[in-house]
Structures are given as C-alpha cells and as structure tokens.
Nucleic acid binder design. Sequence first.
DNA 1: GAGCATTTGTGCGTATGTATG
DNA 2: ACATACATACGCACAAATGCT
Lengths: 262, 262
Amino acid sequence: MVKLLLPHWSPGLVETSVTFGSPALDRGAGIALWRQIGAAIEAAIREGQHSPGQRLPTEAELAQRFRVNRHTIRRAMEELEARGVVRVEQGRGSFVAEDVLDYPLNSRTRFSEIIRAQNREPAGRILRLVEIPAEPRIAELLRIRRGRMVALAERIASADGRPVALGAHHFPADRFPGILDLLRENSSITHALAACGVPDYRRRVTRITAQMPSAEEAELLQQSRSRPVLVSEAVNVDGAGRPVDATVTRYAAGRTQMVVEF
Amino acid sequence: MVKLLLPHWSPGLVETSVTFGSPALDRGAGIALWRQIGAAIEAAIREGQHSPGQRLPTEAELAQRFRVNRHTIRRAMEELEARGVVRVEQGRGSFVAEDVLDYPLNSRTRFSEIIRAQNREPAGRILRLVEIPAEPRIAELLRIRRGRMVALAERIASADGRPVALGAHHFPADRFPGILDLLRENSSITHALAACGVPDYRRRVTRITAQMPSAEEAELLQQSRSRPVLVSEAVNVDGAGRPVDATVTRYAAGRTQMVVEF
DNA sequence: GAGCATTTGTGCGTATGTATG
DNA sequence: ACATACATACGCACAAATGCT
C-alpha cells in the first residue's frame, strides 16, 4: 500500500479528505477505467473513510490522484450519483450521500421510537432548562393566558451520534411544577410527563414550515448555514384532550424527511 | 432533474415604496407619537399601499418622513411586529406580514378546495407539458420500470394572484395517453384524471423536506432566493390502490405551512 | 454589492480499442 | 481486409453556481 501525500488544503467547515488507497487501476484490459474508479470510491465510502455528508475531494484532485482525465472521474461520479452513493452539487463539490431519516407523523410520534424503528441509536441531551413567561404563540397553543409561566426545555436529539433535531418543549409551569428537575435527571420527555401524572399523551396538530437556521442552530445541527431547517410546531394533549406540551422543533432538512401516511 | 420554464414576465423582487400620505402627527398632547405612527403605518398597509411580503421603507427613511427620531419609529414597529402586522429582520429590513396559508394534509388533499376553504381564489397555470422517460425516483413511486415514459405537467398554483406552489405532476404515459391534451384545455388535475377514467383518487403518502430554490423557482414563486421552499413528494392512487400520479411540489415556505391533524 | 477564487457543468475536437457485418 | 458504429479516454476552453471578502 502506497500512501499518497495529502494536500494542505484548509477545510473551512469540518471536511477532511482521506486517500483512496493506492489507485491500482488496470489500464490494460477488461474493465473500463471509470468503472474501476467508481468501485474504488464506493469501497472507500463503505469502509467508512468518508462519512455521510462529508465532502469528497474535487474532481480535479481525484483526476490527478488516479492519473486520469477529469471526464473519466465525472463518468464514475455520474454512476455513483445515479445509484445514490454520492450527491454532486455545482459550485460546491461532491458529498457522500446521507441516509435520509424518515420522520413519520402520527398521533403517537415519539422521537426515540422513530429512530429505533429505523435501526439507529437515539440519544437526547438537554441544552437548557428554564422557566419563562409564555410567548403569545406558545400561550395560544397551550391555551393559557399569555405571560403565564412555562417550563422550557431545549433539547438536542441525535441518531447514531448525528444531530437530527433541536426541540423547544414548553409545559405549563403551574400544572407541572417539578418537570424541570425530572428532565434534569432523565432527558426523556415521555418519562418526565409520566412522572407528572400523564401516563400517555398524543399529538393533535403539527404545523410544518421551513426557515433558515441561526448561526447557533446551524452549529448545533452540524449543518451549513446556507441550508434550511424544517420547523415543526406541535401540540401534545393528555387523555382528556388538554394541552400538556407545545413543541417547536427544528430538523436538519438535508437529513430528515417528514412522512405523512394515510 | 426537472427544469422549469422561465416566465415571459419577470417580476424580479417586488419591492417598491409608497408614501404614507401626509404625516399629520399631533405633537401637542393626548396620544404618544409612536402610537400615531404605528396607526398610520398600519392604516397604509390595510389600505393596500403595501402588499403582503413587500418591503417597507427603512427605519431611517421613516424617521425622516415622520420627522421623528429613529427610536420612535422602532417603538412603533416593535408594537406592529408583536401584533403580527409586520415582520422585522435584522440586516434585511421590515416587511408587511404575509398571511400564512394553511395547507392541510389528508387523503383528500385538493389544491383548489384548500384555497377556497380559506376564502381565497385559487388559480392554476400550466408551465410545461411534455413526455419524458421516468427518472428513477418517479418510476419507483409510480411502480413502473425506470425509463418508461411519463407525462409531465408543470403547473404554478396561486391564491388571490400570489404564487403558492410549483407542482411537477407525473402520470404513467401508457395508462393516460391523452392526458396532456386534456390538461392543455383545462389545467385542473382532478378534471383531467376524471376524463381519463379515474373519477376519484386519494393521496397515500406525502414526504416533506426543505430545500433552497433555484433561480427559476424563486422567480416563479416571487420569493427571495435566500429563503427556503418546502418540497413535498406525494403519490395519488386510484380506487384500486394503483398509483396514478406522482407529484413533487415546491411551496413558498414563508407563505405556506403544512398542517397535519389527528 | 461587486469582485474573486473554487468547483462542477458543458461542449467540441481528437484518438483509440472493440464488436459487427 | 475494410467500413462502420459505439464506448472509452484525453485535452482544452468556457459557462454557471457557490462562497468569501
């Protein structure tokens, strides 16, 4: 195995490159060069040398490394893109395709169950726990008077270690006085509500729109500021139909897809 | 990739300014200046001097016109924003708030019915009608072999004259041979399918994600290129459950909100 | 907002190998 | 042996999109 020197390019965002091993191309006969190159790139990706969403070397660089014309690289990439292995964007570069997370919407939507159903490992981390006066919109959703106190829990949720969603959960503070302490110990919303006497809840409405992320949101979600986030606004109600939780969640749009089935 | 046709009229970004009439401020007594200014701006908006989404004059300009300090203008705008009349964006300007269109998702989703239910006037215009080989994703949704011909209808839908959505409807060409001619005469999808022997259809799945618009898309939707679009991918099936239509629709995210109710 | 560097997209011309008739 | 067609590969130039200053 011959290691090639890496160029000293500055990655800017979190994007490094790894060699594709020694380009053992068989120029002589049999398989077309672009097929061999495609297979080599795909193998490198499958091996984990390039993780999902990460940027691949430029076409020019790959051409140099494999010692072929850029057209040949392009032919290989074309194939890989058609097969869904990579994603090519004009002016930006080529990226390892991300497996899009299907986020089904129904009345029993629970983050961790959704993630596990797709064979991934869910995780949640609390970012902030505070009591604040309810904003007008939140008050309306929770059917409380605006300005009444709400417990706000900001949480980042991830699947297999990749951040997926930023959730801002609002609970009426007078009804659930100890909920922040419960969440401090266990970041599960379902668990906290159960401990507060709400054994089960269901989602009533979900409103979905798209926005550009703030600098902080983009950083937390580990995505570019120039890509949008899906914003969902949901209300969960208890068995009696009373709102227990108004949640505004921001999803990394490139990695997530809401699915509504009928 | 589906390319959209360019319009023959290019509205650019609709941003002009209109005077707020003669600023007859009562400096003497009674009502605070910022209240009078707020009322004047709101009146101008209600009168239609500034249409939804349009940019308002800068704070500096307003201050000059009303002959007050910029702080006074800001106080007025603060109130208008809290009341949802305008939207203020740091570094961009102030805009007349757009009435967000609720787009309910269910198995009977029909564009014109949704718009009419919100007391607006729906309209549709066909942009392009062509037969093309099915892209892999479309073929998968329609359950046909990739490369088989599909009839593609690109349509722009609007409510009260404001563009709302760009839809790319794909029909299996062999099953609906005359559908393009039907759509040429009447832009209603429901009407065309009925004439092809599909009296009723229902939506089975909808997938929602967000993207940045291309230059053409932004222009057609009359929105800034720096704001995202909601992308929905839906399959309509006939009574027997066979796919009749795979549609990819792009909605102006600032003006539209998907609503899922349970 | 204008200019600039980077990167992918596209077109054209050329050459070579391989399968077909 | 020859003509033809097609896929492969290379070289060069410029267009278009993006991101940064």
